[in-house]
Structures are given as C-alpha cells and as structure tokens.
C-alpha cells in the first residue's frame, strides 16, 4: 500500500489523524472515568460518550477511505523488517479499534434493548437482537479492547516520538507538517 512518491500522508489524513488522536484519548478517559463513579458525572459523561463515539466511527470510516485512496509514504529503508511489520500491524490494529470500539458500544446497547441515544430526541436503531448473554460478552469486550487500545496507543506514541526525537528518519514528519530530514522538498 505504500507509495514511493510520497513523503507525507495526505494533508487531510494528517488533520484527521491529530483530531482523532485527541478524540480517541478523550473517549478512553471519559469511558474509564464515568464507570468509576456513582456521581453526577456518570450521566453527563455517558451522554457525551455515545455521540462522540459515533463521531469517531464516522471519522474513522472517512479516514480509512482516504488512506486507501492516497496510500502511505514508504517507511525508511534502514528500518529492520520486524519493525516495519510491527508498524504496519499496529496501524492495522489501531484502525480496527477505532472502528470496532464504537460498533461494540452500539451493539452492546442494542443487545441490552437500551436506547442508543445521541441527543434527547435522536437515537440510533438497534444493530443486535435483545439478548442478555450477547450484551454481557460485548460489554466485556468493550472494556478489554478499550484497555488494550489505550496500551497500543502508548506504544504507538512512544514509537512515534522515538522516530521524531531519536531516529529523526522522517516518519514523524510524514504525519506532521515538517520538512523530511535529509530530503529536499
């Protein structure tokens, strides 16, 4: 999928990447924060969590389409093969989580026969039959995948900073707006 003619990701993809980085991190904090309390924050955070999650789903789908259409710049030639695989694999997992988490949230509320409300007058239709066991599995998956998603983001962030601060090999710049070190524009 990599495009040798590219030095950067498509500009719109970069904008979406950083917007979503903020949104996804916020959602993970909102998620674990709201379920930790019996205080009023539970209701207000959950009311924010649902529409924000669906917004992430829509953004991720747009992002995937742009990514498939515009491709990615090649990783540096001197990057060891396993590291290249790890980079590609983890990016695949990040996409899967960005699309999977909101779908699981939507599906689990459907299986509980709960209203998937995005605002007081707008709700999404159910995408799963009303089934408590199914609800329970999806609810567990929402927690386990949510925590795994957070750990993966930490790893991804460490790797990105490693490229930007230590290797200085242009990978950081490919997702930001800087000039690629060692390359002429």
């Amino acid at each position: 999928m990599s495009r040798p003619d590219r030095t950067h990701f498509a500009p719109l993809l970069r904008v979406i990447h950083w917007t979503m980085a903020l949104l996804v991190l916020a959602m993970l904090f909102i998620g674990v924060g709201m379920v930790s309390t019996t205080g009023p924050a539970y209701v207000s955070l959950l009311a924010l969590h649902r529409p924000l999650g669906i917004a992430i789903l829509l953004l991720a789908l747009v992002r995937l389409a742009i990514r498939l259409g515009t491709g990615a710049p090649p990783l540096p030639d001197d990057l060891p093969k396993p590291q290249k695989l790890a980079a590609k694999g983890s990016h695949g997992l990040l996409y899967a989580a960005m699309i999977g988490m909101p779908l699981i949230g939507w599906a689990m509320l459907s299986a509980a026969d709960d209203r998937v409300s995005l605002s007081p007058s707008l709700a999404l239709p159910a995408i799963m039959p009303h089934d408590l066991m199914l609800y329970w599995w999806l609810r567990q998956a929402h927690t386990v995948i949510g925590v795994a998603f957070f750990l993966l983001i930490l790893l991804h962030l460490a790797a990105a900073l490693m490229h930007g601060l230590i290797r200085r090999d242009g990978v950081w710049q490919s997702m930001t707006f800087g000039k690629i070190p060692g390359k002429r524009d």
Partner: peptide, 9 residues
C-alpha cells in the same frame, strides 16, 4: 444525586 447513582448502579 440519587438519580445518577441509580443509573450507574
């Protein structure tokens, strides 16, 4: 404050 607590519990 009971309402939010009820929702969570």
């Amino acid at each position: 404050p009971l309402l939010a607590a009820r929702s969570k519990v």
